[in-house]
Design a protein around this nucleic acid. Sequence first.
DNA 1: ATTATGATTGAGAATGATTATTTAACAAAA
DNA 2: TTTTGTTAAATAATCATTCTCAATCATAAT
Lengths: 139, 139
Amino acid sequence: MNAPAPMIRLTTQRQIILEELAKVKSHPTASELYDMVRKRLPRIGLGTVYRNLELMADNGMILKLEVGGTQKRFDAITDPHYHIRCSCCGKVDDMELPIIDNLVNTAAENSSYQILGHHVEFTGVCPDCQQSQGINAIQ
Amino acid sequence: MNAPAPMIRLTTQRQIILEELAKVKSHPTASELYDMVRKRLPRIGLGTVYRNLELMADNGMILKLEVGGTQKRFDAITDPHYHIRCSCCGKVDDMELPIIDNLVNTAAENSSYQILGHHVEFTGVCPDCQQSQGINAIQ
DNA sequence: ATTATGATTGAGAATGATTATTTAACAAAA
DNA sequence: TTTTGTTAAATAATCATTCTCAATCATAAT
């Protein structure tokens, strides 16, 4: 789990997974990605997508987001940034907020843990859901 | 999912789940709690534990932590506070850091979401794992 | 007290996400 | 070209969680 991550070869499958992930601004789940990739590689297996997402995340080529909700999500943009998750539909978007480096320092001073990183996740209602809620909320 | 949460009756099962959760400073998973509760109520079902944790979280009686890792964790302390998760053993501890109220304001200004809250999760290596890693790391 | 009504339970089946296993195809090295 | 190791696909297995349902319990009305 803590090995320095071995270099991996960029096979057709890996390249296409990477391309499809980079293509979208959303943060697809493994099975969403599976559906996207299958349009170009109809015979690819779901297991292959999982395995390679995991591998590429270990290599720092992509980001694995362990955000709330049941499924993990992936991100081709590896610069650290915060996320917001719609508590209504589960969608995850990037948050346009600078990373607070100071948080890690403050944390290190207040904890006996060896701090490795941090992650901020906002919850809220996305514009789409605000609209449909407005309709339903008349009661 | 967004209803104002109906009042619930405090059954024996619910009370004992609540008591066992309040008893520990850790943030047990549903099945850890199941094991704890079963010592006092040997015939309780795992489904009952899941069902009632969910209900009590909806009622704000407890906190459901959607932190990283595969399992959800629960917390009897409902004041908002931050957490740190050991990336080695998965343990979750409280973080002795004041909540940054300002974050929500800043977020609201920079997003089209209607912000409901936020949650900060640090990752790091806990003291226990630092020790055992020290041993393993000689290579 | 008796009965009706709905809430809650325990047991286990079902589901959904993920990981592991097996066998086959493939690529690089010898 | 045989050998060796890497990667893939298919599928089985696992894990956490949710669902279903008959049985039980609590409460209020008779």
